[in-house]
């Protein structure tokens, strides 16, 4: 490129560059389109997958969390930031966490604790503007549940009792069904004994019963395949 062509193209690009910035300037001042989020006055819209310090989920049926102090999160945490303790509680079968501390200053928000939790009672909180004069950033996760502990025990006991009752009922039903089946079997056996001379016919009848069943099953499969194709 020649000397003057270079000068000309250079000047042109300079002017067009200044045009771009002038457009932005006018856009900000005249059209009031600054992209700034005026943070303390405006709050940010956080993404659904936003990660902050972990917290315990409050479940509706018990109005409390469901941590059973299994310590799976404490063991898997790569940053050693979770410390929890708990044990048996009078009145309910489940174990219950007593203290659950998470050091937010150590946490790297990897999310392994969420993945490993057997009762799925951990989630991320939405705290986004924490700052303080102190280096102690231990978070007390059970603090907000302390007042609801009695309520939880009551509700949990009710749930457990209901579950136990249901289980007992089911067991009874199963037992009854078993007895019934046993009775029916006994009756059949008795009937078979009575019809002992006809023992050639009985297997044949059973075979005839089974055959159409197989055929219908095969037929179903066939039609399914046709539908799919």
């Amino acid at each position: 490129m020649g000397y003057f062509a270079k000068l000309f193209s250079g000047s042109k690009s300079l002017v067009s560059g200044m045009g771009v910035t002038l457009k932005e300037l006018v856009g900000t001042t005249a059209q009031h389109k600054a992209v700034t989020l005026q943070y303390p006055k405006e709050k940010p819209v956080l993404a659904p997958a936003y990660r902050s310090a972990i917290k315990l989920i409050r479940f509706e049926e018990t109005n409390s969390h469901d941590c059973v102090a299994c310590k799976a999160c404490e063991r898997i945490c790569p940053s050693f930031c979770i410390k929890l303790d708990g044990g048996k509680v009078e009145g309910i079968k489940k174990k219950r966490v007593q203290t659950f501390e998470m050091d937010f200053a150590l946490c790297s928000l990897c999310g392994l604790c969420l993945d490993v939790c057997p009762t799925a009672t951990l989630e991320y909180s939405k705290a986004y503007d924490e700052a303080g004069y102190n280096r102690d950033w231990r978070v007390d996760l059970v603090a907000e549940f302390r007042d609801y502990e009695e309520e939880f025990i009551r509700k949990q006991r009710a749930i457990e009792e209901a579950a136990a009752a249901e289980k007992a009922l089911k067991a009874e039903q199963a037992k009854a069904a078993k007895e019934k089946a046993a009775k029916a079997k006994a009756a059949k056996e008795a009937a078979a004994k009575d019809a002992a001379p006809k023992d050639d016919a009985a297997p044949k009848a059973a075979k005839e019963d089974a055959a159409p069943k197989d055929a219908s099953g095969a037929n179903d499969g066939h039609t399914d395949a046709e539908d799919k194709s």
Partner: peptide, 15 residues
């Protein structure tokens, strides 16, 4: 001032 987070959001720094 101590700002926790990994990393903290820009809002946290402004706070």
């Amino acid at each position: 001032i101590y700002i926790p987070g990994c990393p903290p959001r820009p809002e946290a720094l402004i706070a």
